[in-house]
Design a protein around this nucleic acid. Structure first.
Lengths: 123, 123
DNA sequence: CGGTATCCTGAACGATACTG
DNA sequence: CAGTATCGTTCAGGATACCG
């Protein structure tokens, strides 16, 4: 091998991007919550019911993270009874659109993935 | 509210897809390894050097997972010295393409994300 | 209604040593 | 070279209880 010298720092910016994406939506609930908010603003309890099996704590933690990243907005309505709504920001909408191909890929390959796993596990 | 009855099971298939995607590439290393393999087959040690800070153990674990899912192939070459190469399967290549928009989104919004976090943390 | 606070468990991950 | 085995730690996430 003679190319040993000039191949340092191959893809550091790509690595940075991947870390950022995973840090934002790589957890168990964020993408799920974002997907539900595509249809429009939702209240806390409404989300709690919609996102199956999420605990109250994890919904709060997830929403705080998404709010911090500028993906959702939190709006407190002073009414009787008082309530809070969450809504995708414009950036949140574009994030949603950016994930569409990946979700589509899963639809197209779910069967093949299950098959590959079965083959691998059988051996 | 009068729509309480007919809104059960809103998006279960979408949830399933998201779980599958995160289960495959939602961990710390899989996407990173896949991205490095875009350029062509690589040997174990070559990957170990390329993927910054990955431990030998995690590289093995990650590659096994990707192999199980049909994303990479593992080929043992009987030579002296013996070596092993990893390569993206056709399905692995399409997965890579499906993630491109999401990575591109990060490039476009990295600055805005950092800004949003700074604003949120300052308050 | 929409949270916080606290405690706890399991899985993911890292470090290190050894091997065909 | 390309692993496996073992151990220790960290941390995301779940259960539960309480609150403005």
């Amino acid at each position: 091998m003679t190319t040993t010298d000039q191949e340092r720092q191959p893809v550091p910016p790509e690595a940075r991007r991947i870390r950022v994406v995973l840090g934002m939506v790589g957890d168990k609930w964020s993408l799920l919550v974002v997907c539900h908010l595509r249809r429009g603003p939702m209240r806390f309890t409404e989300l709690k019911r919609a996102v199956e099996d999420i605990s109250q704590r994890m919904l709060t933690v997830t929403l705080r993270g998404l709010e911090r990243d500028g993906i959702v907005t939190r709006t407190v309505h002073d009414a009787m009874p008082p309530h809070v709504t969450y809504e995708l920001t414009p950036m949140g909408v574009t994030l949603c659109e950016a994930t569409t191909p990946l979700l589509g890929w899963t639809v197209d390959h779910l069967a093949r993935i299950d098959e590959a796993r079965a083959v691998y596990d059988a051996r």
